[in-house]
């Protein structure tokens, strides 16, 4: 029973997973509704609700930037953690390579999101 003596680093990933899960539960459905149903079908919201100038202005405002960043990044950490554990349940056990692939992808998306959000200016 060696692993009993080694402190687990899971809290880092579990924390990101938990935060992403909470956010997904709060914002996920309404985001799907807005971006996938309401805007394309012009239901409730005006047709230009997600037009280029509006979305650009949103992404240039500090609050919009913040929101976009946490939604993209934390959803991604949540999803990759879940996929990693589901693979484990299916018999594909997380070796170091698989962990790097999953969490690495989440990190890549996080950094890309940050970079794009900075690039669109203020």
């Amino acid at each position: 029973m060696k692993p009993i003596n080694r402190r687990s680093n899971a809290p880092v990933f579990w924390g990101l997973f938990g935060a992403g899960g909470m956010l997904a539960a709060l914002f996920g459905p309404v985001l799907v509704f807005i971006t996938g149903i309401a805007v394309p079908l012009v239901l409730i919201l005006p047709a230009d609700a997600m037009s280029w100038p509006r979305m650009q202005a949103f992404a240039q405002h500090w609050a919009g930037k913040g929101l976009l960043f946490v939604v993209v990044a934390l959803f991604m950490w949540h999803a990759m953690h879940r996929i990693l554990h589901s693979l484990h349940d299916l018999g594909v056990h997380a070796g170091t390579a698989l962990k790097f692939a999953c969490y690495g992808l989440a990190l890549l998306v996080t950094m890309t999101a940050a970079w794009i959000l900075v690039a669109v200016g203020f």
Partner: peptide, 8 residues
């Protein structure tokens, strides 16, 4: 509880 054999 917090080890690699623990709750996580």
């Amino acid at each position: 509880a917090g080890s690699e054999a623990g709750v996580f």
